[in-house]
């Protein structure tokens, strides 16, 4: 029986990483998975939750719970949204259904490694040097650590050590807009330590927007890096070769 996955594109990736979402679909299909995109999906509620708007977050959680009620698996191209569902939904909505959805919810690379048991995708990244940014929630809420790196290197990429790879990029949702100076300084720490690579990748669109936006702004001031920032879904799809 083919495995059925509901893709939760997440509001941010839907608008800013549409191609990466499409690459996630291609990748999953390539691995023999039947992908669905429940059309009523919107936002998981994390921006509101993290800003303290619990009631609003609860409404979005209830909506999301109803959208994915019947999904066998829910896969997200975002560690932080997956973390929101898995770690916090039970706090703000019906505990039973929330915990149940949490168990069916996975970040993309986590799903590939732990559910599909993928070891290697292909050799499409041969000769490429890559730096991987660990999104905080993927790392600390989901425990996604070696999975993306194994997938990238399995596809031939050389994942280059990055001193600050596990440090926060400074995005943090509304934090980046409320305290922009500190947030930017955090991104600077990441960019200042970034090794010379073909591209930087991560499983979280928010982090990528923060890092690329800051890097581009610094470039105007000539201290920036020109390294491209790519969503891991696209990198892994390329890895298939």
């Amino acid at each position: 029986m083919t495995m059925r996955v509901a893709l939760f594109a997440t509001c941010l990736a839907d608008q800013f990483f549409a191609e990466a979402c499409a690459d996630a679909v291609r990748l999953l299909r390539h691995l023999g998975v039947d992908v669905d995109f429940p059309e009523r999906q919107t936002c998981c509620g994390q921006p509101a939750f993290n800003a303290g708007y619990k009631a609003e977050a609860a409404r979005m959680a209830a909506h999301t719970l109803s959208v994915f009620e019947d999904a066998e698996y829910v896969v997200l191209p975002s560690g932080s949204c997956a973390g929101m569902i898995r770690s916090y939904y039970s706090e703000i909505s019906d505990e039973g259904p929330a915990l149940d959805l949490g168990k069916r919810t996975f970040e993309l690379s986590q799903f590939l490694v732990h559910v599909l048991n993928v070891e290697t995708l292909g050799r499409g990244l041969s000769g490429k040097t890559v730096a991987y940014h660990h999104g905080c929630h993927a790392l600390r809420e989901l425990g996604v650590d070696s999975e993306p790196i194994a997938l990238l290197s399995g596809a031939g990429a050389q994942v280059v050590p990055w001193e600050a790879d596990k440090e926060c990029c400074g995005f943090g949702g509304l934090f980046s807009a409320k305290l922009p100076e500190v947030s930017a300084a955090m991104a600077d720490r990441k960019l200042d330590t970034l090794p010379n690579v073909d591209f930087v990748t991560s499983g979280d669109g928010g982090c990528l927007l923060q890092l690329s936006g800051r890097s581009q702004r610094r470039r105007v001031g000539a201290s920036g890096v020109t390294t491209p920032f790519r969503h891991i879904a696209s990198a892994l799809w390329e890895g298939v070769g």
């Binding site: 608008q15 800013f16 549409a18 922009p180 936006g213």
Partner: peptide
């Protein structure tokens, strides 16, 4: 405004994933 103060504008994809 807070975002743009320190970073370049993000680029929405040409078309949404939807």
């Amino acid at each position: 405004g807070g975002w743009l103060q320190e970073r370049s504008a993000p680029h929405p994809s040409q078309k949404s994933f939807r």
